[in-house]
Design a protein around this nucleic acid. Structure first.
Lengths: 255, 255
DNA sequence: GAGTGGTCTAGACCACTGA
DNA sequence: CAGTGGTCTAGACCACTCG
C-alpha cells in the first residue's frame, strides 16, 4: 500500500511536551488545521469531500473521517449529511451569540439590541498587555458597549483588542455591522475566535456601570472576564462584561 | 452473517420525539445504559471487554466501540488503554469535586475543608417540589454546609434532596464520610449524578450568609443554583451555593 | 506473554441533499 | 440521479498494562 505521505510522521527528537508518536489521524488533523488557519478553506465554505481528502493525504477514508470528527467536535468544522463539511463561522449562526451564556429567567429569548458607547485606541496597561500577550505600551483598542434585552440594558461590555490585528476598526464600522461582533472580526480582520475562558465573580456596581445599566451604585453585578483565543491558543481578545442578573442568569451545563 | 439481535431494531410507530431509526450503535448504547442504571455494572468496576460485548450483542467490535466511545464522552465510562473500560465514579476521583468550578485566583489549589451546619427533613415547598419533580408536601431533606479554602469560608451551600431516595441520611453520616458528597450518594444510596445545570447570578449577602462566610451583609456574592440529574435526566438534587468571590472565581470554558 | 484498548484499512451499504 | 456524510463489518497490527 502506498504509505508515503507528503509530510512524514513527526518523530520528535528531544524532550518536548507533545507525545512523540502522534497517530496518523492527528497528523491529518494538524495538516487540516494549518489550512484552516492559513485561510485556504474560508469560513462558511465547504471543504473537500472525505474521499478527496483521503486521496490527497494518501490515507483511508476512515482515517480522515476521524480527523474531521475531532475538528467538528472542536467546533472548527460543521458536518452536514448529504451536503458536505463546512468551515464553522460566527457570521451566519442560528444562535446569535455563541459565547454569550446569559439567558432571560423566563425562557423566551426576544432579540437583543446593541449600542456602542465608544471605541478608542491607546497604550496597553501592564495588566491588559499581560493577558493579551503584548508588550506593555503596545497599541490597544478599547470598545465599550451595552446590550439590551427588550429595551432594558443588561450587559455592559468593556473589550480590549490588540491594535496590530484590528487596524481599521472604528466606531462607525461597529455601529453599521449587522450580526455578531465575532462575525465582523472574522470577515473583516481574519481573526477567528476558537475558544475562550471565563472568570466569573460577583461585584458591586461602580458609578459608570450603574449609569449604563440603570441600577443603583453598589448593586450586585456579575463580572465576566473573558479571554478569547484563536488558532494555537493565541489570546486575541480580553473582555470584561458586567451583567445585571435581576431578570437574567448565566447558564452553564456540567457533565 | 448472524444479524439476529436479542432486541430487534425499535422501529417506532406513531409520532414521537425520538428519531424513528436509531443506528445500531445507539441501540447498543441504550442497552449498556440500562445495565449501568440497573447497577449490573457497579461504579469503579470494569465492564466486559469490547470483544466480549461484541459477542454478547452480536455486532462487530467497531460498533460496540462507537457505543462505548459515546458513553465515555458522556462521562459514564472511563477508558484505560491496556487495562479495560470502567464505570465512572465520583468516589475516587483525582479532582476532588468534579462539578465545583470555583478556583482560587492564584492557581494553587490547597485542599478544602467541609463543615456541616445542619441536616433536616420536612415537607417540600412548592418551588423545591417543582424543581425536583415532587408533589408539594413530599418529604425533602435539607443539608447546609460551608466549604473553606485555607481556613477561610468561601462557599455556603444549601442542598435539597428527595426524602424518598435518601432515607438513612443523617448529619453524623455526612460528617464522618471522607471524600466528595456525590461519592457518598453513589455508594450509600445508589444515586449517581450524571449531569447538572447551573444558573448563576450576583446577589447581596443576607444576614445568615454574611455570618457563615464572614463578609458584610449586602456584600456581593455569587449565587449558583444547581439542578443535578441522574439517569434519564431525572432531577435528584437542588442546590443553592453562595460563593465569596473576593479571592476566588468561577471558571468556565467556552468552545 | 496474554489481554486490553487504539489505530488503520477496504469495502459494502444506507440516509440525506439537491439538481 | 450522483455525490455527500453516516453506519457497519472483518481483520491486521500497534501500544499499553500486568503478572
Amino acid at each position: 500500500m502506498p504509505m508515503d505521505r507528503s509530510e512524514p510522521a513527526p518523530r520528535s527528537s528531544v524532550a518536548d511536551e507533545t507525545p512523540a508518536f502522534a497517530p496518523l489521524y492527528r497528523q491529518i488533523k494538524a495538516l487540516m488545521m494549518r489550512d484552516l488557519q492559513a485561510g485556504v478553506w474560508r469560513p462558511g465554505a465547504a471543504i473537500p469531500s472525505e474521499k478527496d481528502l483521503a486521496l490527497r493525504f494518501h490515507v483511508s477514508q476512515g482515517t480522515v473521517r476521524k480527523a474531521v470528527n475531532e475538528l467538528a467536535a472542536d467546533n472548527l468544522l460543521v458536518r452536514r449529511q448529504g451536503k458536505g463539511t463546512f468551515v464553522a463561522t460566527h457570521a451566519e449562526e442560528n444562535v446569535q451569540f455563541r459565547f454569550l451564556r446569559l439567558r432571560p429567567d423566563d425562557g423566551d429569548a426576544g432579540r437583543m439590541q446593541r449600542s456602542f458607547i465608544d471605541c478608542r485606541r491607546f497604550a496597553a496597561s501592564a495588566e491588559v498587555a499581560r493577558w493579551l500577550g503584548l508588550k506593555s505600551g503596545d497599541l490597544v483598542l478599547q470598545v465599550r458597549r451595552v446590550l439590551s434585552f427588550r429595551g432594558r440594558p443588561v450587559v455592559f461590555d468593556d473589550i480590549w483588542l490588540p491594535g496590530k490585528l484590528f487596524k481599521g476598526l472604528t466606531g462607525e464600522r461597529l455601529a453599521s455591522y449587522r450580526g455578531p461582533l465575532y462575525g465582523l472580526f472574522e470577515s473583516e480582520f481574519g481573526v477567528r475566535m476558537i475558544r475562550a475562558e471565563e472568570r466569573i465573580r460577583a461585584v458591586a456596581a461602580g458609578a459608570e456601570a450603574a449609569l449604563h445599566l440603570g441600577v443603583a451604585p453598589g448593586a450586585p453585578l456579575l463580572s465576566v472576564e473573558r479571554l478569547s483565543m484563536t488558532y494555537g491558543d493565541a489570546p486575541v481578545e480580553l473582555r470584561r462584561g458586567l451583567y445585571d442578573t435581576t431578570a437574567h442568569h448565566y447558564r452553564n451545563q456540567l457533565s
